[in-house]
């Protein structure tokens, strides 16, 4: 099975930009650092989407993106929880350690590209990019802690 072509070709570029923003600087790009950066990007995107859509909304988007990308990137199956309904983004670094940084980097890029493409189909490319890139504001003192 091949991954369906994205309707929004820029989704791959958006995914690359997302990954690049967390990538370790040259000279510090050990496999472990790259793996940690991959995981950081996934969690950051998940955090942004959860902020707008809730945990369930974010999970639904990631789960569908996973379903689209894992056929070409079998390493992504490690991120699927046993219940098959949720995704385990905290396991990205471990998956990279197990399978190697290169294939997992490609897999995560495909996962994020699929995510951007799916969300763009639903709410438009511009809005999708805005919400994915949006970082939840940092807490000021005195506010209740974020869950």
């Amino acid at each position: 099975m091949t991954m369906p072509s994205p309707r929004f070709p820029d989704s791959v570029l958006t995914a690359r930009r997302l990954l690049a923003s967390d990538a370790p600087p040259r000279g510090e790009d050990s496999s472990a650092a790259i793996a940690a950066a991959l995981q950081q990007t996934c969690l950051r995107v998940c955090g942004s989407l959860s902020d707008s859509f809730g945990d369930d909304g974010c999970n639904a988007l990631f789960t569908r993106a996973l379903a689209r990308a894992e056929a070409q990137h079998p390493t992504l199956r490690d991120l699927r929880r046993a219940d098959h309904d949720t995704i385990f983004l905290e396991g990205v670094a471990g998956t990279a350690a197990l399978h190697g940084v290169v294939p997992v980097s490609a897999a995560i890029e495909a996962l994020l590209a699929a995510l951007v493409d799916i969300l763009s189909r639903l709410i438009g490319e511009d809005m999708a990019t805005r919400l994915i890139n949006h970082e939840a504001p940092r807490q000021k003192g005195g506010g209740a802690p974020r869950p």
């Binding site: 959860s50 902020d51 707008s52 940092r138 807490q139 000021k140 005195g142 506010g143 209740a144 802690p145």
Partner: peptide, 25 residues
């Protein structure tokens, strides 16, 4: 901002806490 997690917890303090936190931010 989605509040479904706090709302499903049934804890109204949690809901209010999240709203106040977002408002103060």
């Amino acid at each position: 901002v989605n509040l479904s997690k706090e709302a499903t917890s049934g804890n109204l303090d949690e809901v209010l806490g999240r709203i106040v936190a977002e408002v103060s931010n």
